[in-house]
Design a protein around this nucleic acid. Structure first.
Lengths: 180, 180
DNA sequence: GCCTTCATGTAAGAAGTTACATGATTTC
DNA sequence: GAAATCATGTAACTTCTTACATGAAGGC
């Protein structure tokens, strides 16, 4: 997606909660945000510089140990405005969910294709593992049933769990039919 | 996703079924494949040239009317091998589903945020429309219950319908809770 | 005749991936 | 002292989007 620079808004969104280093932001894609977006540090560091040039964020230096200087970034009021504007805009596009397995499946024309069953079981295992991971995340982050502090985070986790539950059930259903 | 050139395999996959022009391939992304991948003609035409350089496809010219020459592409046996290899490879990555609405939702922390309800209703409408479209596609392409000719296509349509059904139900559920 | 669709390309630039590169701090 | 993690960057390259550009054929 070489377009609206959504990564920019993710960074602004994260910084609107607390001050973070580039490294912290990079790590966020391994956990929370990783469920629905990805980014590498080589993309993040240059963008942080650009956002600072545009005065949407600033940084202060924090000394760690004796020599290492961390750059602690924080959002400016201009940055908050830009973030809020983005949130306020309509989101009229449903982007195609680029799923390589689904792509491959499209080109399997017959239930007799020997590739089909291995593909299905591989994916079932993957999505089952993901589902387990998501459920762990849920019980770690929202142990009591009231999703008090962060509604959005709760909802996207709930959504991801439902999606993976549905995905694994669908795969299982095909596996049952194919192997019968 | 600047990586494994999956578009290449989509083109090979489409051409393994029948001869197509670049224009036909472009159009395929408006219907069938559009459910789970996107591409513009400006990406397709240069890639067709590259694939022909690599001898994975060839073309013949077909005269339309008096002057217009269409390039009808077809897959070579080398191309078929490459396609089959791709299908045989494991697909061990679940790519993050980049959904801008989910992204925005992540940064809505409270049920009291005035942006929440409009966002939800907008998305509900969008996904409801998509669901209707998908169901129409299904009944147009697979009118009888046996999915005889093209299993893969049937399954991905089924998957998309389930996904959108789940998505709209999830949104409706939140709307009910928020507006109560 | 006019408008829509068919048909094929190129150019510029943004976004994203993979690899290269370096060094400090913490933990065991 | 070694290994893992913290921390920040750049370079090269591919992919993808948006816009520019042109012209033929078909339907009304």
């Amino acid at each position: 997606m070489a377009q609206r620079n959504q990564l920019k808004y993710i960074i602004l969104g994260l910084l609107s909660e607390k001050k973070l280093t580039g490294y912290d932001i990079t790590k966020a894609f391994d956990s929370d945000i990783g469920e629905f977006w990805s980014a590498n540090h080589s993309q993040i560091y240059p963008l942080l510089k650009r956002l600072e040039d545009d005065a949407l964020i600033t940084h202060e230096l924090e000394l760690v140990g004796e020599k290492l200087e961390k750059k602690l970034y924080s959002i400016t009021s201009a940055g908050k405005t830009v973030l809020r504007e983005w949130l306020s805009e309509p989101t009229p596009e449903i982007s195609a969910t680029k799923d390589e397995f689904i792509l491959k499946l499209y080109f399997i024309h017959s239930a007799d294709d020997p590739l089909l069953l291995p593909m299905l079981t591989e994916q079932h295992q993957l999505h089952q593992a993901k589902l387990t991971h998501l459920k762990n995340q849920m019980s770690r982050k929202f142990p009591d049933e009231t999703s008090q502090n962060n509604l959005g985070h709760f909802l996207i986790l709930q959504h991801a769990i439902q999606r993976e539950t549905r995905y694994t059930a669908w795969l299982q259903d095909i596996i049952d039919k194919v192997s019968r």
